[in-house]
Design a protein around this nucleic acid. Structure first.
Length: 545
RNA sequence: UGCCCUGUAGUUCAAUGGCAGAACGCUUGGCUUUGAAUCAAGAGACGAUGGUUCGAAUCCAUCCAGGGCUACCA
């Protein structure tokens, strides 16, 4: 279906393989921090890491970067695994945790101390900040910078033994307090945290920092290409420094690519958390959220997300992808495989005044081009419903509506002519009086009539009531997160309607289908046979409406 | 008054010194019992200025614009 993907990272990998820079097959990793739920931005990274490994015959680790026990939990570890699996990727036996390497990490830290490249610093966090300098001014050396190796080793071991209070001391790399790269101004390598870790329990009271941990884990796992997002560009010299100053004989290259930006969406963990905590959305799996669990509940199939990630590409450019591309991928994935049915979301009763007797049984294909999806029964009778928006007393030629004294085809049914409209005191239509054309039966039409519009409909006898949830963008600005959240939220991002759906959809418990002319829908998780609920996954593409 | 990264159609990406292409979106037309799908056509871009070169989107310089970096987070 899709031809070989090409981007600067894949080109680099191809070159590395051709030039024997990699020994054997390539190895990548997806290294989430288990402190939140995954979103479609993570999916880009997952598709990249697992994707290139698959394409080049390599392997991928799922490695949890769990170096901060205060922010992590097993709940997130579980949900992340579920999401990665749901997206269609398999780490096989390569599930690891940074905490698996705590012992080795500690050993490497002692090496740094012994070679005089790291020291124990007694400055407080505030003092370290104050002496780090600024973007334009160099920092100043810590008064503890010249401690002897023996003293540092002793102190570090006592740190590990739990003899110091949190915040009282840290282990820092001795690099350059005047470096124009702030990350090289004697970065903290270990801090004291008397906290229980979700995997190592109370074994440790000092925990390694990201910059010290990540590069070493990459090296230990033999990661041949360490792919991360752009904001780590300035960390790369530190990544390299650690690996050069520790006795490890493998040095992965860190390669950075840009995060995914999706218009009308936020990927910031901070803002997503606010949305959930303040009740702006109904949990992390709210169908309006770009979280993997939200997309799953929305009814988006994983192949649509993979296709989307492939189409979006991988570069170092800051980007803001149009939602129309995601919509396209979703429709594309659903088009051939989704059975069709009819649902009237905002019903307007229709009385067929010239109809008498029992309902007429009709047949309709579940997919006009895919006969494998089968056929279903419809019934046509005196009591029908059409979409309220499909009736206009008078309409222009371009508007495909049923008009007063006009005709329309009821899909897979008969042609009807509207002869009268009943209105309430405010002039809104409450019922249509129509005549059907008996010789216009679908497939056996001898009427010679050529109605301009074909409408979806249901008959009262063949329909059950259902709730429909229609979603719009959660935000009403293309790039939210800049100003006040309240102003940026779209007040009509979720609309619930009470309508009617063909019985067969409920009787046979269809979970995902297209309601003709209304879009693709998925049966909600809180849906029951008594009160069915459908989420609109995506509307159909449409021109004038 | 620092360091790093990035500038190609509306958007996201190709083109790796040799005719600027694609996808999505948009416009128009065909088909159609879904304003869908599908088919066909079309409009639309190298941030700027210099330089190197037979030849520059590509190399160099300067400028401009956008993003990132000042956590004992990752």
């Amino acid at each position: 279906m899709s031809s070989a993907i090409s981007d600067f990272i894949r080109n680099r990998i191809r070159d590395d393989i051709e030039n024997d820079v990699v020994d054997g097959s390539i190895v990548t990793r997806f290294p989430p921090h288990p402190n939140g739920y995954l979103h479609i931005g993570h999916a880009k990274s997952i598709c990249l890491n697992f994707g290139v490994a698959k394409e080049f015959g390599g392997k991928t680790y799922l490695r949890f970067d769990d170096t901060n026990p205060l922010k992590e939990s097993t709940e997130f570890v579980a949900s992340i695994q579920e999401d990665v699996r749901w997206l269609g990727f398999d780490w096989e036996d390569r599930l690891t945790f940074a905490s698996d390497y705590f012992d080795q990490l500690y050993g490497f830290a002692e090496q740094l101390v012994e070679s005089g490249r790291a020291y124990v610093c007694d400055l407080s966090a505030d003092e370290i900040r104050a002496t780090r300098g600024t973007l334009t001014e160099p920092g100043s050396n810590s008064p503890y910078r010249e401690r002897s190796v023996a003293e540092n080793l002793d102190l570090f071991r006592h740190m590990r033994a739990g003899e110091f209070e949190e915040g009282s001391r840290v282990l820092r790399a001795k690099i350059d307090m005047a470096s124009p790269n702030l990350h090289l101004r004697d970065p903290v390598l270990y801090r004291i945290m008397h906290a229980k870790h979700h995997r190592t329990g109370n074994k440790w009271c000092i925990y390694p920092m990201y910059d010290f941990t990540h590069c070493i884990c990459d090296a230990l796992e033999g990661i041949t290409h360490s792919l991360c997002t752009l904001e780590f560009e300035d960390n790369r010299p530190l990544y390299d420094w650690v690996l050069e100053n520790v006795s490890i004989n493998f040095h992965p290259p860190q390669i950075e690519f840009s995060r995914l930006g999706l218009e009308f969406n936020v990927m910031s963990k901070r803002i997503l958390t606010t949305l959930v905590d303040d009740g702006h959305v109904d949990g992390w799996d709210d169908p309006r959220l770009p979280t993997i669990s939200g997309l799953r509940r929305r009814g988006v199939p994983p192949e649509a997300i993979r296709d989307f990630c492939a189409r979006v590409g991988v570069t170092k450019q800051v980007n803001l992808i149009e939602t129309s591309l995601l919509d396209f991928c979703v429709r594309n994935a659903l088009e051939d495989t989704s059975p069709r049915a009819m649902a009237v979301i905002d019903p307007l009763p229709v009385d067929v005044i010239n109809f008498e007797g029992d309902d007429i049984a009709l047949e309709a294909p579940n997919h006009s081009k895919n006969p494998d999806l089968g056929i279903r029964q419809l019934s046509f009778g005196k009591e029908l419903f059409i979409e309220r928006s499909d009736f206009l007393e008078s309409a222009s030629k371009k508007q495909r509506k049923l008009t007063l004294n006009g005709i329309a085809r009821l899909r897979y049914g008969f042609i009807v002519e509207c002869v009268d409209v009943v209105k309430d005191s405010e002039g809104n239509p409450t019922e249509l009086k129509v005549k059907y054309v008996p010789e216009s039966r679908s497939g056996q039409d001898t009427s010679g009539l050529k109605p301009r519009s074909t409408l979806h409909w249901v008959s009262g006898a063949n329909a059950v009531s259902a709730k429909f949830r229609l979603f719009e963008h959660l935000f009403n600005v293309r790039e939210p997160g800049q100003g006040d959240l309240g102003d940026e939220l779209n007040p009509t991002s979720k609309i619930e309607k009470d309508g009617l759906v063909e019985k067969v959809v409920i009787d046979e418990a269809w979970d995902r289908c297209q309601f003709e002319r209304n879009g693709y829908f998925v049966r909600e998780s809180d849906s029951t046979a008594a009160t069915p609920v459908f989420n609109r996954i995506v509307s159909l593409s449409s021109g004038v409406r």
